[in-house]
Design a protein around this nucleic acid. Structure first.
Lengths: 215, 215
DNA sequence: TGGCTTATTTATCGATTGAAAAATAACTCG
DNA sequence: CGAGTTATTTTTCAATCGATAAATAAGCCA
């Protein structure tokens, strides 16, 4: 107080590439919390720089948002999962457990969940891209593998009813992430246990009831 | 074109109460599409009136939004559902089918779904209110009724694991609404069939596997 | 050290925001 | 018809928005 305190914090100059990367990383945090409609000034405050500096690195707010999307969504999918899900050396039940634990580790983060729903409500094409990914790379594979493991060697496509039922299982697991990161509601701490029970019920359920596959 | 067309549309004067009700109804449509960050001018345009007129009926934009919340969320829950779920004259499976068809009829609308997620992301208290409602009035009841119907007459509470499994079932059904109205992705047209299969799998699954209730 | 580059800030613009005040016009009732 | 009430519009304001231009200062290399 009595000292002539230098109020101004020292200004570090970062290299162009460092700064850019830092902006995107922190913009993800910021937009995940405040939504994409928040101002570039508040974003700059969160970054500890002035607002016009953003425009040295991104031509417009929308371009920055696009980079945020890309960084958040890109490369979340591990190519090993493609192999894992189709690896008939291992029992399907075990494959699914391993997959869903890894998959939910990847997407059950506050940033991913919130940005996914923010962008979904804004009508970005991410909706259909995600649905397509889940359909092709997860659910249809699960149904194919299930038929194979249970002796149905026909190459038939999954029926819409079967696919829907797989969606209910997948959605139930996904909804755990929504409850935790969007609703911020307490959930069962043991995520692996939740997945295990969900898979048990799904596999037992479609095995024991004819309903799911009736006409 | 050649006629001296009266560009100005006639201005009807509505009574105070009529106008207010109309504003809220159309504000629900508008905010459900555009989000709550959209301007009051655009809202007024959608209403066919001038922007300052809004401020005769609502002291601020936030007050209007609150009324939108109330109108959308209030009285969606039918008291008859409380009775239905606990009606031990009917088999549980049948009760659940009837309930979920009616419940999803009530909330699987574009307005409800989108406003629910918009407000949820904004950190309104609706999150916890909804989770509490589902916990108390739906899931815990289902688990109690299930135990009763299967001869477990103890008055014990549901374990966290059991509750979580019920959440997965409920979330799976709820996710159908998200896919349809948020992702705008094609879903199985037969909603009753989706519910039926989801319930079959859930009830068969927890009946046939010990996993859900192990430990 | 001195000159050059460039990251960063200061200052500012026009458009849009929520909101208030004043002016107008439609309706009611005598 | 005519005065009073009130729903609605016109006008306007201060704050904030995304974005640009000019000024400044930190770092680099001779």
């Amino acid at each position: 107080m009595s000292e002539t305190a230098q109020a101004k914090p020292r200004k570090k100059r970062l290299s162009s590439t460092e700064r850019r990367a830092e902006f995107i990383t922190k913009a993800i945090e910021f937009f995940a919390e405040e939504g994409f409609e928040s101002s570039t000034r508040d974003l700059a405050k969160h970054l500890g720089v002035t607002q016009p500096l953003l425009y040295r690195y991104f031509p417009s707010k929308n371009d920055l948002i696009k980079e945020v999307y890309q960084t958040v969504y890109l490369n979340r999918w591990r190519e090993e999962w493609d192999i894992l899900l189709c690896d008939r050396e291992r029992p399907l039940r075990e494959r699914l457990q391993t997959f869903y634990e890894a998959y939910t580790d990847a997407i059950f983060t506050r940033e991913w969940m919130r940005i996914f729903l923010f962008s979904g409500l804004k009508g970005v094409e991410i909706n259909r891209w995600y649905v397509g990914l889940v359909n092709e790379r997860i659910l249809n594979r699960i149904l194919t593998e299930y038929r194979f493991e249970n002796g149905d060697s026909s190459d038939r496509q999954a029926t819409p009813e079967e696919l829907e039922l797989a969606w209910v299982m997948h959605g139930g697991i996904f909804y755990y992430g929504i409850r935790k990161h969007i609703y911020e509601s307490p959930v069962l701490a043991d995520k692996s246990r939740m997945i295990s029970d969900a898979l048990d019920v799904f596999l037992m359920g479609i095995g024991e009831t004819g309903s799911a596959f009736k006409d």
